[in-house]
C-alpha cells in the first residue's frame, strides 16, 4: 500500500518505515497519524520482514504533532486529544503492539512527541548530528508519554532535565550514547541507514519466535517489580521449550551453519 506521508521499503529482512513530511520537520498531521496506525500493522504482518527500522527524510527525525496543521482540523484535534487523555494512541510500534524488533534510526532533530518513536523502539541508533529535545514546557504544555517512559529507561535526572529545560537545551548524540538512550552513533550521518540495516540483519539471524518472546518479556520488566517481572518472564521462557527453533539453534551451532528458523506462529505475534 502507498502512503502520502510515509515511505515504506524493504531491504532483505529489514522493513523500513520512513517519515516523509520533510517540509514540516516530519511532524505528524492528521493523515500521518492515520497512516502510522496502519503501517505498523502492515509491516509487522509482512512475513518477509524480520526487523523493522524507522527513520525520517531530511534533517529531522520527527518533531511530534504538527500543531499548525492540526489547528486547521479541529475535529481531528479533538479526537487526538481524546485518545491522548484515554492513553489510547495508535502511532508508535508499541501502541500497535508490534511483535518484531524495531530499530529507530534517528537521523537529525528529534523533538517532543517525536521522542516517542525512540522510547517505543527496542533499539536506537543515531547520526552524529542528531539532537534530542522536549519543548513541551516551553510551549505551555505538559510533557507527553515519552518523558514518563524515559523516567524508566534512562537515569531519572537526565530524563527530568530533558523535560524541564524544554526547547532551551538540546541533548547531543554523544550524551544520548553515554546515558544509554541510543547504543550507537553513526558518523558521517549519511552512513546511518547503512549501519541500521547492518544491525537489523544481525538481529534477523536470530530465532524470530525467540525474539518475539524475549521482546515481550523485556518490556514487561518495565511494568512491574523485579521479582514479578522475572516470574512472568518465566512463562515466556517456557513458551519456547517445545518450539523447533530450540532444537535447530544448538544443532546449527554445532554444525557451524546458519539456523533455519520457523516463521513465528500467528499466536506469537
Amino acid at each position: 500500500m502507498t502512503y502520502e506521508t510515509l515511505i515504506t521499503e524493504r531491504h532483505g529482512p529489514v522493513g523500513w518505515l520512513v517519515f516523509n513530511r520533510p517540509e514540516a520537520g516530519n511532524a505528524m498531521n492528521a493523515t500521518m497519524f492515520d497512516e502510522l496506525a496502519q503501517v505498523w500493522i502492515e509491516i509487522d504482518h509482512d512475513p518477509a520482514v524480520r526487523v523493522i527500522a524507522v527513520t525520517g527524510v531530511g534533517e529531522y527525525f520527527n518533531t511530534g504533532r504538527d500543531v499548525e496543521a492540526l489547528a486547521r482540523e479541529p475535529e481531528r484535534l479533538r479526537i487526538l486529544r481524546g485518545q491522548m487523555r484515554a492513553y489510547d494512541m495508535h502511532f508508535t510500534a508499541r501502541h500497535q503492539q508490534v511483535a518484531k524488533p524495531v530499530v529507530a534510526a534517528v537521523n537529525g532533530i528529534c523533538a517532543g512527541g517525536g521522542l516517542q518513536f525512540v522510547t517505543d523502539s527496542d533499539i536506537a541508533l543515531c547520526s552524529s548530528n542528531a539532537r534530542f529535545l522536549d519543548p513541551h514546557v516551553s510551549l505551555g504544555q505538559t510533557v507527553e508519554y515519552s518523558a514518563f517512559t524515559l523516567a524508566r529507561t534512562i537515569p531519572f535526572g537526565v530524563a527530568m532535565r530533558l523535560a524541564l529545560t524544554g526547547r532551551h537545551e538540546h541533548m547531543s548524540a554523544a550524551r544520548a550514547l553515554e546515558i544509554g538512550l541510543v547504543t550507537e552513533i553513526v558518523d558521517p550521518p549519511e552512513k546511518l541507514r547503512e549501519a541500521v540495516q547492518t544491525a537489523g540483519e544481525l538481529i534477523a539471524r536470530n530465532s524470530p519466535a525467540a525474539l518475539v518472546h524475549s521482546k515481550r518479556a523485556m518490556w514487561r520488566a518495565l511494568q512491574m517489580g523485579l521479582d514479578d517481572a522475572c516470574r512472568a518472564g518465566s512463562q515466556d521462557i517456557a513458551a519456547m521449550w517445545d518450539h523447533p527453533d530450540q532444537i535447530e539453534g544448538p544443532a546449527a551451532l554445532a554444525e557451524k551453519r546458519e539456523p533455519k528458523w520457523q516463521p513465528p506462529e500467528a499466536g506469537e505475534r
Binding site: 523502539s121 527496542d122 533499539i123 536506537a124 524508566r152 529507561t153 534512562i154 537515569p155 546515558i179 544509554g180 538512550l181 541510543v182 547504543t183 539471524r205 536470530n206 530465532s207 519466535a209 525467540a210 525474539l211 518472546h213 524475549s214 518479556a217 523485556m218 520488566a221 518495565l222 523485579l226 517481572a229 522475572c230 518472564g233 518465566s234 515466556d236 521462557i237 513458551a239 519456547m240 518450539h243 523447533p244 527453533d245 530450540q246 532444537i247 535447530e248 539453534g249 544448538p250 551451532l253 539456523p259 528458523w261
Partner: peptide, 23 residues
Amino acid sequence: HTTIGQVVGRGTLGMVSDMPFEP
C-alpha cells in the same frame, strides 16, 4: 539466547533494573 532459539533468561530481565533499557 535468541541465537540458539531460546528466550532471554532471568539475568537479562534483571538487567532492566540495573542499567538503561535500550542497551
